[in-house]
Design a protein around this nucleic acid. Structure first.
Length: 425
DNA sequence: GGTAGTAAACACG
DNA sequence: CGTGTTTACTACC
């Protein structure tokens, strides 16, 4: 608020912020439009997001109202709800409430996710205990939610993080920008709560690779790593492994980091060999969400915060080659895709945000498998693009900004792109 | 009367 | 102390 809303610019200090913060908290708690998503990673703090169902226009589910509020089913789950003084709390917590569960379940949310049925939030909550805690924890709600949404309904899932203390403001912003894509690198062993900065960066990269390439590819045709994008897209298009998502969501079996690139797929478990409109929606929604999440979405170059961690980030974006197990996983995931394609992915992963212009330069243009029908992918890309663009326009226009990435020193320069000296062989 | 903003009390970790 | 919940008060439409 302080950073994004002029009015609050000078109201960031603890003194002057007490009032409006209190008001915010008050409204968050009071109105069912907002739902709290517990985030163990941040201790006492939680994520606040818009109720996918919109919530009631009126008040939040108060104890008595909770039972009546069928639509939102946002029962009070706060364990300490009954802590109030006896006089006030005549009625004990309703049995309808799910005590202990911090996660209100709105109808239909986890539906698509086969087993997770009972507890959507469990799908991510456990992850909080893992290294990617903060990130994944914040992501899941979104993903789950959006996964639930139908194509026509891209509900805004604006999240407000109360974990300001744990996540640097800038990082928080970054995270918000890429909400829903954090899952892309949930398992990254590099990630940790303290390293949220780097993770944020990583996330951002992944987000770009997933949500921008399409749009960016068309918009920014002057890229050096076009093949990469195409490859990625192809992998995305072909890969469908719901179980992967399962594993991703399972704390016990953290997914390989490289999956972050293909994790987009998990998002579209039902998808066959091409991205479903649902997925597209998801991506678009995330983009839109990004805009919504911050008054100055891309305005602040991620590079700014990314710089310090850029070096470490890159490796994490193309780990496929580093770890045998990762490689295996990725190749298996990309079964339909030729090995060369996978390789191209590996090579290009770090520069995902580049465009997918039809004229690949440097890198592995000559490596592109003959069976890799670029046109086909391009078609898909165009299709996706249209969708995304439309979505974006509907939301007020495109808001892509890849500027920060280009100047990143860590990335191979244009002239050296074909050398890959930095690429593990 | 409904809604919204603010202040405040209170509980919890 | 930060966060979250709740109540009370006030102002506006």
């Amino acid at each position: 608020m302080v950073r994004s809303v002029p009015y609050f610019k000078d109201k960031g200090d603890s003194n002057s912020s007490a009032g409006w913060k209190n008001s915010i908290r008050h409204n968050l708690s009071l109105h069912s439009k907002f739902v709290k998503v517990h985030n163990e990673a941040t201790g006492k703090s939680s994520w606040w997001m818009l109720n996918p169902e919109g919530g009631k226009s009126g008040k939040a589910p108060r104890r008595r109202a909770a039972s009546m509020d069928n639509s939102s089913k946002l029962v009070k789950v706060r364990g300490k709800a009954s802590r109030k003084k006896p006089p006030l709390q005549s009625a004990p917590e309703s049995s309808a409430d799910s005590p202990g569960s911090q996660f209100p379940k709105w109808p239909g949310s986890p539906s698509s996710r086969s087993n997770e049925d009972s507890d959507v939030w469990n799908t991510f909550r456990p992850r909080t205990s893992s290294n990617a805690s903060t990130i994944s924890a914040r992501l899941s709600p979104i993903l789950t939610e959006q996964d639930d949404l139908h194509d026509e309904e891209l509900l805004p899932s604006l999240m407000y993080s109360s974990a300001s203390s744990n996540v640097p403001p800038t990082v928080t912003e970054e995270l918000e920008l890429i909400d829903g894509l954090n899952l892309m690198s949930p398992s990254s062993s590099v990630l940790s709560t303290q390293q949220s900065a780097s993770s944020g960066q990583i996330q951002r990269d992944s987000s770009f690779s997933l949500q921008s390439p399409n749009a960016a590819g068309q918009t920014f045709g002057n890229s050096l790593f076009n093949p990469v994008d195409i490859s990625l897209q192809s992998s995305v298009s072909h890969f469908s492994a719901p179980q992967t998502l399962e594993s991703l969501l399972t704390p016990s079996s953290p997914p390989p980091r490289d999956v972050m690139m293909t994790q987009v797929d998990p998002v579209l478990p039902q998808t066959g060999n091409r991205m479903s409109s649902r997925t597209l929606l998801l991506l678009g929604g995330q983009a839109a969400q990004s805009k919504m999440s911050s008054g100055n979405p891309r305005g602040k170059p991620a590079e700014q915060q990314a710089e310090p961690v850029g070096a470490s980030v890159l490796p994490s974006t193309l780990p496929i080659v580093t770890s045998p197990q990762n490689t295996a996983s990725i190749t298996s995931l990309k079964a339909p895709v030729s090995a060369t394609t996978a390789q191209s992915v590996q090579l290009g992963s770090p520069v995902l945000l580049s465009s997918a212009s039809p004229a690949p330069l440097g890198l592995n243009q000559d490596r592109l498998p003959t069976d890799l029908d670029i046109d086909m992918y391009m078609e898909n890309l165009e299709c996706d693009m249209d969708y995304i663009i439309n979505s974006e326009l509907m939301d007020g226009g495109l808001d892509f900004n890849f500027e920060p990435i280009l100047p990143t020193p860590s990335y191979p320069s244009t002239s050296q792109a074909s050398n890959h000296t930095w690429v593990p062989s």
